[in-house]
């Protein structure tokens, strides 16, 4: 009998809404209550340093190339010892979509996402972060990695001094 089942369905519907009326709301009262994001939450971007305190970024432009909205720009420069760095480094957070592709692309773990999601500003120009705003003192998520211990041979360390490397073989000593 469709009438009976219709009436039953309507009453069941009233039951469902009553049940939800008595449940705790899921709302988070934002400025007073703040949710604690997971450690891998993708928000404000930082530039980290290696454990020895040097800037990790080698100004390779990979993050800038990976960024789908083109909001990273920088100027590469080279120190006297041959180590590369970014003369200036700029992220326009008003365009950033917090996709995390820059952090994935970075070979030196320099650019990292942090869970700090509260970066609203009254003036949109304040959302353009310069290098001094981005650079932090710590290592971020990986506090043992130093790019130059694995690569950058011949720049900051002699050949063969990398962690996974052996000293170069002196080919003359191999003569029979």
């Amino acid at each position: 009998m469709p009438l009976i089942s219709d009436i039953k369905a309507i009453i069941a519907g009233f039951g469902v809404t009553l049940h939800h009326m008595l449940r705790r709301p899921v709302t988070i009262q934002y400025p007073e209550e703040k949710r604690v994001p997971y450690p891998r939450f993708r928000a404000r971007i930082v530039l980290t340093r290696d454990p020895d305190g040097g800037e990790r970024c080698v100004a390779c432009y990979l993050c800038s190339a990976a960024c789908p909205v083109d909001c990273i720009s920088m100027q590469a420069a080279e120190r006297d010892d041959g180590r590369r760095y970014a003369a200036w480094f700029r992220i326009n957070f008003s365009r950033c979509i917090f996709c995390g592709l820059c952090a994935e692309a970075c070979p030196t773990l320099a650019i990292q996402m942090t869970p700090d999601y509260e970066i609203c500003k009254r003036d949109i120009m304040d959302l353009v972060y310069e290098k001094e705003d981005l650079l932090i003192d710590g290592c971020g998520k990986d506090n043992s990695y130093n790019f130059y211990h694995h690569a950058g041979i011949g720049v900051t360390q002699p050949r063969g001094a990398g962690l996974e490397e052996r000293l170069p073989v002196d080919v003359r000593s191999l003569l029979p």
Binding site: H20, P25, V26, T27, Q29
Partner: peptide, 9 residues
């Protein structure tokens, strides 16, 4: 009340 029904405040 509508908010409560929809699990809001």
């Amino acid at each position: 009340i509508l908010a409560w029904i929809q699990d809001r405040k």
